[in-house]
Design a binder for these strands. Structure first.
Lengths: 204, 204
DNA sequence: GAAGGATTCAAACGATCGTTTGAGCATACG
DNA sequence: CGTATGCTCAAACGATCGTTTGAATCCTTC
């Protein structure tokens, strides 16, 4: 039972963990509030409903994550000597750093579940709030891969993001290494993902 | 409400559709039996429990799918002039054909959900019953990519399967085209996937 | 056509779900 | 001190969950 931070923060933390482990339907508010050490009614008091809690779980991470992604993209977008790998780095590194924090290490799993859900409400929420991020990255990919048709480009970006989401959702448990090598290991992981995605995007 | 086939088959069909749309927890036996046009108690009578029904939904498709994959792999494995693309074709084409059947078009979505679940019981079931398929493909990839370390090979296979699962789980609805061009479109899709995966696996 | 196993059926079981309620407690402000 | 205000609490709400039951019905076999 977590006893640090405000009630809202404890609920959000427990929700992230349990949504990652058991899914949005599978994790009940009773398991969730029990793990957070708060009263059952606190969820509806602070968030209004379970569905709105789900939204806040996403917002808490994605606001910062996408801001970092856009900041990193801004440093390379449009520059004449920018390589494909630089853009992928801007996309991948913020997510990977999130996966290696003590807090937030399970969030990418929540995100992977959201993609698998194919839930219209959730997809609409993500598209409305964070769709512009993917659009900016897509525009930069299009600039660096001018020989690809629009259809081919969308295909490959979809495949690349699928690979990255799949890989990053497996983290937090499997890929966690010892503290001394964590930084080096993370850098190695970034390079693995970038090499794979760059080659796929750049395929003949 | 489906009224064709035996009770067991109608349940399996409705279960596949609803599991794809709403998830294993989200789809209730009442929705499921109602869509199948059978009595609620029929699930427990014919399958024993909801969990065993889930297993049968997987078995019904994966037995045939993996048999096709292994048969296609056997035609190229170990041959001196086999290309990476041939092995990927053996892996991808059977799954894509399943995605374009009227029946079974939603199964890859069920499979994508299972991957996102990270459920130990389900992963153990899949590993015990179909793990040898992935092992045979991995061995052939290792033969064709001798310059990759074992760690690098596993990384790339994981990323490639993630991309393919992600892409194929989006089918059945989005990518369905008109009947006349369906065969040509499917072939085009196979080539997209193979090109991307081959380039990723083969990256410098 | 009677017997008997296989299957279907409506109904109910206890458990658990998300949500609501109203009393109780805390802290801050007049 | 008195009283708002924000928050927590136990308890209960109706709904829905997976499962079980026992009678009704179908279907085969002699």
């Amino acid at each position: 039972m977590n006893r640090t931070g405000s009630t809202k923060e404890r609920i959000l933390g427990a929700a992230e963990t349990l949504f990652a482990q058991r899914g949005f339907d599978g994790a009940s508010l009773r398991q969730l509030t029990s793990a957070a050490g708060v009263n059952l009614a606190a969820v509806n008091y602070h968030f209004g409903s379970k569905e709105k809690l789900v939204e806040q779980v996403f917002r808490r991470r994605l606001d910062a994550l996408n801001a970092q992604r856009l900041a990193a993209l801004a440093k390379v977008a449009g520059k004449p000597d920018t390589r494909l790998e630089d853009v992928l780095d801007a996309f991948i590194r913020p997510a990977l750093e999130l996966s290696h924090e003590d807090e937030g290490s399970l969030f990418m799993r929540v995100l992977a579940r959201a993609f698998a859900e194919h839930d219209d409400g959730l997809r609409k929420f993500l598209s409305e709030n964070y769709g512009h991020v993917m659009r900016q990255f897509t525009a930069e990919f299009a600039r660096l891969l001018p020989r690809l048709s629009k259809e081919e480009l969308y295909w490959r970006i979809d495949l690349a993001t699928g690979a990255l989401t799949h890989a990053m959702s497996g983290f937090g448990i499997i890929q966690r290494k010892s503290d001394v090598s964590e930084r080096a290991h993370r850098e190695q992981t970034v390079q693995h993902l970038i090499r794979f995605a760059a080659a796929g995007l750049n395929a003949t």
